[in-house]
Amino acid sequence: EPFDPGQKGSSAMPHKRNPILTENLTGLARLIRSAVTPALENVALWHERDISHSSVERAIAPDTTIHLDFALRRLAGVVERLVIYPENMMRNLDRLGGLVHSQRVLLALTQKGMSREAAYSAVQTNAMKVWRGEGDFLGFLKADPEIQPHLSEAELAELFDLGYHFKAVETVFARVFGR
């Protein structure tokens, strides 16, 4: 979330930028969820209503809608001013040595006829080498004799394309923001 000039961070750690807006949203979510139990208790006796039902509704209906309205406005402000560091994001992904693509590799291997158990074992064996800092995931997969008969180097490289994960971004944005 944005950190405005002059804004204070943590009282104990001056370098820390506390996400105060989203922390506030978390608290508001708790307040909104707190209305669920009394609302559900009202439903059980819907045909035998009495003052105990309407008294609950008189409190939770306005309070919950006010909290929800405030939370949605706050969230919209956070999203509008969201600070994104694409270079840091890419650096973090790269630090994983390609492991973020393990699920796609697993599924591709099963689609090529490898049993799920064998595919899982092969992918995991190569992933553990990456965790130990021995190299990169794609390189290990390309060299693995269990994987080579099922996926070509080109097919493996295609599974490592981050664009796959962003293919529906414009559709989602259009649905959410009407663009």
Rank of each mutant, 00 (worst) to 15 (best):
V78C: 09
P62V: 07
S115G: 04
T110N: 08
K112V: 00
M90Q: 15
P62Q: 08
L82R: 01
T110I: 12
E153K: 11
F160I: 03
R49M: 13
P62K: 10
A122I: 10
S152I: 02
G98E: 07
Q124P: 03
R104G: 14
I51M: 15
I66A: 14
A108F: 10
H67D: 07
M90V: 14
Y120A: 12
T110E: 13
L109N: 07
A59F: 14
V78T: 02
L141G: 05
N92A: 06
E117H: 15
N88W: 05
S152W: 07
E80A: 15
V79P: 00
L106N: 06
K112H: 11
L141Y: 02
P145Y: 11
H53P: 09
T64M: 14
D136Y: 09
H101W: 05
A59N: 06
E87D: 15
R58M: 14
K142T: 06
T64W: 06
I147P: 09
R104F: 03
P149S: 04
F137S: 07
T64H: 06
D136I: 12
A127G: 09
W131M: 11
A59Y: 11
A143H: 00
I84F: 09
T65R: 15
A122G: 07
A108Y: 08
L106I: 05
S54T: 15
E57A: 08
R91C: 05
V79G: 00
L72K: 11
L72M: 12
E87G: 04
E87F: 02
E158M: 00
A119Q: 11
K129C: 09
T125S: 14
K129F: 11
R91S: 13
G77W: 00
G98D: 08
L141R: 05
D94V: 06
D94H: 12
G77C: 09
